[in-house]
């Protein structure tokens, strides 16, 4: 199994210093958990953040020099330069940190290559008959099994287990510059329109969730009746399963 992890080379939002985004570290973790060879791939010049990402378990990161926009550069590289030994799996983070940060690149790449894409992947299982079984992380701790046809693009869940940082790996990692035909890569989304200005935190709507005023109040009800009302209310809210009874371990 040969997997390629897409690295964007990012910054730390607090300090502004180079640091790989959490999602890309999670992607490296997924690539390593499958076993087999894992390499990094970056559209753009070598940057210190790539070395820091490689410290989580990549021996080599290929930096593409040229190729037009990032999606084109990556697609060309995957199709042409790796044509003889194509990867089975391409992994990406949910969102870059330090550029456009739109999370669109994996989707555009999947569309360009015509590969299936699955987002929110928190664990990968075994591959069989050209299909890979994966686990998707849903909100509130829920999980969903899925199978995806290889080759494919997987977008890692930020909470997928991250492999440890090993300083020695950062020092040894090879950042290889690969010249690709075409102009220097630019952001996948092309020239962004609009103005950039320093971020201003805007408070979320307050009271959007909190209800004002008390709801229904049962003052000293009959206990059995209160219990029934309580159960029906919880059921109406959808947090209590429909009369499935007590959970198996109760």
């Amino acid at each position: 199994m040969r997997s390629i992890v897409l690295l964007s080379g990012g910054i730390d939002p607090l300090s502004g210093r180079p640091a790989p985004p959490q999602g890309e570290i999670a992607a490296i973790g997924l690539a390593r958990s499958i076993g087999g060879a894992a390499e990094g791939l970056h559209a753009g010049g070598p940057s210190p953040a790539l070395r820091l990402a490689a410290a989580h378990g990549l021996a080599r990161v290929d930096c593409l020099d040229g190729g037009g926009n990032a999606v084109e550069a990556l697609a060309t590289y995957l199709a042409t330069y790796l044509g003889a030994d194509p990867p089975d799996l391409v992994l990406a983070g949910r969102q870059a940190r330090g550029g456009e940060d739109s999370g669109m690149l994996p989707y555009l790449l999947a569309e360009r290559l015509g590969w299936p894409l699955l987002a929110g992947v928190i664990a990968v299982g075994a591959a069989a008959d050209g299909w890979l079984s994966v686990m998707i992380g849903l909100p509130q701790g829920a999980r969903q099994e899925a199978r995806v046809r290889l080759p494919c693009i997987l977008v890692a869940h930020d909470a997928a287990p991250a492999p440890p940082f090993i300083f020695d790996r950062a020092r040894r990692a090879e950042l290889r510059v690969v010249p690709v035909a075409g102009p220097a890569p630019v952001a996948a989304e092309g020239a962004a329109e609009g103005d950039d200005r320093p971020y201003r935190a805007r408070p979320r709507l307050i009271g959007a969730s909190a209800r004002t005023g008390a709801g229904q109040v049962l003052d000293h009800p009959d206990i059995a009746e209160a219990a029934t009302v309580l159960r029906d209310h919880l059921r109406a809210l959808g947090v209590l399963g429909p009369s499935r009874g007590a959970s198996p371990d109760a």
Binding site: A210, R211, G213, A214, G215, Q216, V217, L218, D219, H220, P221, I223, A224, A226, A227, T228, V229, L230, R231, H233, S243, R244, G245, A246, A250
Partner: peptide
């Protein structure tokens, strides 16, 4: 109670077992 959508003014030590019994009954 001012924050709640449904409030039951009663002893928790009475309501909890009653609700538990109700759920167990359903499960049976």
């Amino acid at each position: 109670i001012a924050r709640a959508g449904l409030s039951i003014v009663a002893d928790a030590q009475a309501v909890m077992p009653a609700l538990l019994a109700l759920l167990r009954e359903e499960g049976a």
